[in-house]
């Protein structure tokens, strides 16, 4: 068991290394001079040279790479061109809203999507199923920001039920947090709900066709227990997997949601960095988000062993 966990943890190392290489290569291997692009159209030669030096682009490529890896290992993600502050400090300042938003979204989405998916699978082929699936396609297709603006328009501007902008910390202002987080959570959760519902339905449906479900029915087991004791427990692994993989969608969506609702989180940090051409911040954030994603999926993988006795070390 411990060996398995150790091995799974170790297996993230090459993936993280490749992520680091990809992010490193992104700046160095794109055609054209990235320093010129980053400096922008009105930049002077001096500004370009300064950017080149600050990104270390004037060093030989292997030296650049070694420096980059060493710095990552030391927790140094570079320095913002615009504010001259360490990227890690900036990320630390903006961490809370994003974490809170993703947390509420995951909890909200999973508690809606899993029952919905099981229900759809159980009623497969009926109108209930078709309605739930239509809702899921809708969730996939509605761009996060369009949904966000529709919600703001309806509940913020027309009905005036909820504040349309900003973020309050749950530690200082729980009520304010609750009222500001509702719409972003729904907005961000939509596509995630669509995804998890779909996969839950599909996996439960597949399991329902298995021989052991027939065995359970042949024992005289009641339908409710067939569904929850036999089916859902077997479908848990693909559902857990998609919850993990879906985190990537959530991270992308958070960037947009924070922009729409003006939440001062990491997503806004990205958008501000895009506008200011502050490449080290973008690079650092991609790295942090990717590593978070890898670690979450590793934790879910380890959790599998608790769910499914077949998966063994």
């Amino acid at each position: 068991m411990w060996l398995f966990i150790l091995r799974r943890v170790a297996s993230t190392v090459p993936v993280m290394l490749i992520v680091a290489v990809v992010i490193f290569a992104m700046l160095r291997l794109t055609p054209g001079d990235p320093a010129v692009v980053i400096a922008g159209d009105q930049a002077t030669a001096e500004q370009i040279a300064r950017i080149r030096a600050s990104l270390g682009l004037d060093l030989p490529i292997h030296e650049q790479f070694v420096t980059w890896i060493v710095h990552i290992l030391q927790g140094d993600l570079g320095t913002s061109i615009f504010t001259n502050m360490p990227v890690s400090t900036l990320i630390g300042q903006r961490l809370e809203p994003t974490m809170m938003l993703t947390l509420t979204t995951v909890i909200f989405s999973v508690s809606v999507a899993v029952p919905l998916g099981v229900w759809a699978a159980w009623r497969a082929g009926t109108w209930t199923d078709r309605l739930i699936m239509m809702f899921s396609v809708l969730g996939f297709s509605f761009p996060v920001f369009v949904l966000g603006y529709l919600l703001i328009y309806q509940f913020g501007l027309t009905l005036k039920w909820l504040p349309t902008q900003g973020y309050k910390s749950p530690f200082t202002d729980p009520l304010g947090f609750a009222s500001t987080i509702v719409m972003p959570t729904i907005t961000l959760g939509m596509i995630y709900i669509a995804l998890v519902t779909r996969i839950t339905r599909a996996s439960v449906l597949e399991v329902l066709g298995e021989d052991y479900i027939r065995t359970a029915r042949a024992k005289g087991q009641v339908e409710r227990k067939v569904l929850f004791r036999h089916a859902l427990k077997n479908a848990a692994v693909p559902i857990a997997t998609i919850i993990g993989i879906g985190i990537a969608l959530l991270i992308g969506g958070a960037v947009v949601t924070e922009t729409v609702f003006n939440i001062p989180g990491l997503g806004r940090l990205v958008v501000d960095a895009i506008l200011r051409r502050d490449y080290p911040i973008i690079q650092g954030l991609i790295l942090v988000f990717s590593f978070t994603y890898i670690i979450i999926n590793m934790l879910i993988d380890i959790a599998y062993t608790m769910l499914d006795p077949r998966i063994r070390y």
Binding site: D211, Y212, R214, T215, R229, K233, N234, P309
Partner: peptide, 16 residues
Amino acid sequence: MAMIFQEPMTALNPVL
């Protein structure tokens, strides 16, 4: 009445 099936691997629930 009770029944046994052809494929004893798939007829038993793998997670119980």
